[in-house]
Amino acid sequence: MQSPAEAKPRSLSQLGKTLSDNVIIVGIVLLTVVVGVLRNNFFSEANFRNLISNTAIRFIIAVGVSGCLITKGTDLSAGRVAGLSACISAILLQRSDYINRFYKDLPDLPIIGVLALVMVVCAVIGCVNGAVVAYLKVPPFIATLGMQTLVYGICLVYTGAQPIGSLRADYAGLATGYVGTPMASYTAIIAVVIGLLMWFLYNKTRHGKYMYAIGGNENAAEVAGVNVGKSKMTIYMLAAVLYGLCGFLLAAKSGGASVNMGMSYELEAIAGCTIGGVSVNGGVGKISGILVGVLVFELLKIALQFLGVKTEYTYIVQGVVIITAVALDIQKYLSKK
């Protein structure tokens, strides 16, 4: 239908559209370049290592939340669930010679066993989220907001609000360890593996197709024979398992844990997803986009830091970016109507 003469301007306007659709990404990348030029230590190895490990951890959470977003839901309990996981992991993996140990006589547990345990605990929380959303039909925003507070409460009760330190060297070493180059940290490798697994799940399996279908049109999915309830359960459960993994890594990275660990990570995850093209209108979103979104959001934070913007102000900027990202996403949808 397109005559060859029209083809060129079309590809140009296509480029313009791509840029305007991703205006936040373009803006932040430009900002980063400017900061990089202005501050000569910006392009340092330490800074990149920091960026990669921060991005890796938040990417895992964001991928979890993305399933909820794609099905027109959300999960506001993400950060607190990660926090609980961090606390449990830290408690079970404290040094045995530490005087203020949480469990005095706990034998040295296998690290993988602790990871499995926190994932199971988180899976249970995710199941509850999923069941409340899918079967009790509580709006996901409310259901998971309630769960956020609930989990925080559990965490406070369990830890007595005491920070947990003195982690075992082998556990803390997970965060500092790397293969070959410091860029390929264990955390980064784990995030890549998770990304690949989730890409496979989203694109090559029935579950993925059902997820996009539910987000695209839940009623139509039901008519087409999709077990909507079961799919949603799986999505919220899997999301919580990923928060569990994230919390486990977070404690290792920080060398300890406290009840406030992971706080408001869900908002950063939602921001990363939305900037990366996951639509809050459902049915749309790619793993690669989420990676870009999370990375760009981390870049923004680091760039602000290098510009010497005070932490108080960075919150304001982040809030504005999150609202803008969602508003732009909604506008895209509205113009199609």
């Binding site: 695209g216 049109n217 139509a220 008519v223 749309v284």
Partner: peptide, 13 residues
């Protein structure tokens, strides 16, 4: 529209 198509998905899906 309400109970048939998945508007944002491909013909194949």
């Amino acid at each position: 529209r309400a109970t048939g198509i998945f508007g944002v998905l491909s013909v194949a899906d």
